[in-house]
Each structure stands twice: as C-alpha cells, then as structure tokens.
C-alpha cells in the first residue's frame, strides 16, 4: 500500500531524512517512534507529499509521489491524515468540517456528504455536537472529529502524526479507542506516536527512527519482546519511555 524507497530530504544543508525505506502493506498497522527531531513527522508528511523530498520515491497505492505527472491533490484525497493539533477549520461547523472536502474535492452531493459525515460522527460518539463549532469542543473531541473528517473521504490508508501529543492526559484514551477500533477493522495505518500501549495492542510493526534514519523496522513482538537484540539507541529510547 505504501512503499517508501530510499528517501532523502534536506533543509538547506541539513539532512533530515537519510535513506529511509520501508513498506506498509494493506491492512497493516505500523507505529513510528523515536526521539523528537528524529524525522518521524517529516517522514509521514512525505507520504502524502505535504513535505517535499529531494531523492528517492514513495509509492502510495500504485501512485508515485516523485513522478512529475502525479496529481498530488488527487493522491492526498485518498490518504487520510490526522494532525497533532487537530486542524479542524474553526470558521466552519462540525458538519461543514466533515462535508466540505467531500463535496468540493470528491464532488459528492450535499445530502450524501452530510449523511456520510453524520454517520462517522456518530461512530466517534459525537453526533450531538454536529451543529457546534470546533472551538466549543474539547481537544479529545476535536481530534475524534478530525479522524471522522479524514475517514469521510474513504481513504485507502490513514496517517496519524502524533495524534495524542497535544491532548490533556484524560483525553488521550478516547482518541486511542477510536484508533484501536479502526485498526481492528483492518484499516491500513501509519502512526507516529509515543503511545507504546497503543503500539503493543494493535501494531503489526514498529519503526524506530533516530537522526533521520530508520534504525529499527521489525515486528511488534520482536521490538518489545526481544529488547536486547535491538540497537543501542532504541534500547536507550525504550528504557526512557517505558520506565514509568
């Protein structure tokens, strides 16, 4: 579903991604972790071309991002993305947030879009808030709406960029619950997150990044189970975040 092939990216002279390669197959859930500044958010943003890269290629569902003839907006419309800071559109109601891209990008009728949007809103447990504006919802609720908004586009894959990092602790679980459910339904997912509980529960594979490189790329059980077989850097990272 996603094939990342030797991606290199520079900001000026500084190389942020170095030779990143990995595959995510259909239905797979891959968690990307690593210290801050390791390039994990940059990598996931390369997957829907929100960040350009200079070398290598990423192929999403058969479409190459590096190919000049690729229609990037069209590609992005098939890739759902959830951001750290939710990024709901504050000037629109929740319903409008859920329908605007369905009607304007996919060309669905207004009724169809509202119907779909409300069904997904119900699924994330927020149907009663349809008429409100994003500012009236809590962070956890906004993030659930953001997930519904992405799902409304019928994406072939969902990307999550630290979806719980900006949330108050008591709201993390309501978002993770939605993500777990999604994973169990067979959605292909790539998640940048520090939630190791989530990784343990639903991830098929874990990728560990450091200084712009993919250091570890292995099955979940190997990553958490056979910790001494991991690289020194990964062991240090795990020791830090699993301490408490």
């Amino acid at each position: 579903m996603i094939s990342i092939q030797n991606v290199n990216k520079w900001y000026g002279d500084f190389q942020v991604l170095t030779g990143c390669s990995t595959e995510v197959s259909k239905g797979e859930v891959v968690v990307v972790c690593g210290p801050s500044g390791s390039g994990k958010s940059t990598l996931i943003k390369c997957v829907n071309a929100l960040e350009p890269f200079q070398q290598g290629d990423i192929v999403v569902d058969g479409t190459s991002i590096a190919a000049p003839q690729t229609n990037l907006p069209q590609l992005r419309s098939r890739v759902g993305m959830v951001f750290q800071h939710f990024e709901l559109f504050p000037h629109l109601s929740i319903t409008e947030n859920l329908t605007i891209a369905q009607t304007k990008v996919l060309g669905r009728s207004k009724d169809e879009a509202i119907d779909k949007g409300l069904r997904l809103l119900d699924r994330v447990g927020l149907k009663a808030h349809a008429h409100k504006h994003p500012g009236q919802l809590s962070g956890g609720q906004q993030q659930r709406v953001a997930i519904a908004r992405a799902l409304a586009m019928d994406p072939v894959v969902m990307l999550f960029d630290e979806p719980t990092s900006a949330l108050d602790p008591e709201m993390v679980n309501e978002v993770l619950d939605v993500m777990v459910e999604l994973a169990q339904e067979g959605m292909t997912m790539m998640c940048v997150t520090h939630e190791m509980g989530f990784a343990r529960k639903v991830a098929d594979r874990v990728i560990f990044m450091d200084r712009g490189q993919i250091v570890e790329d292995c099955a979940k059980d190997a990553f958490f189970g056979d910790i001494h077989a991991r690289s020194e850097r990964a062991q240090q990272f795990l020791a830090k975040i699993l301490q408490h």
Binding site: K45, N48, L50, P73, Q74, L75, R76, S77, R78, V79, G80, M81, F83, H85, E87, L88, F89, I100, A101, K104, V105, L106, R149, A150, M153
Partner: peptide, 18 residues
C-alpha cells in the same frame, strides 16, 4: 492563520485555490 490549516486543507485533497 496557523500553517497547519493549509496542511490540513491540502491533506483533504484540496487544490491550492480551494
């Protein structure tokens, strides 16, 4: 306007004009 708004709009498949 926060930069993320543009990213979110783009991620939904909108063109620059949209």
């Amino acid at each position: 306007i926060p930069k993320g708004q543009m990213g979110a709009a783009q991620a939904l498949g909108m063109s620059y004009g949209q």
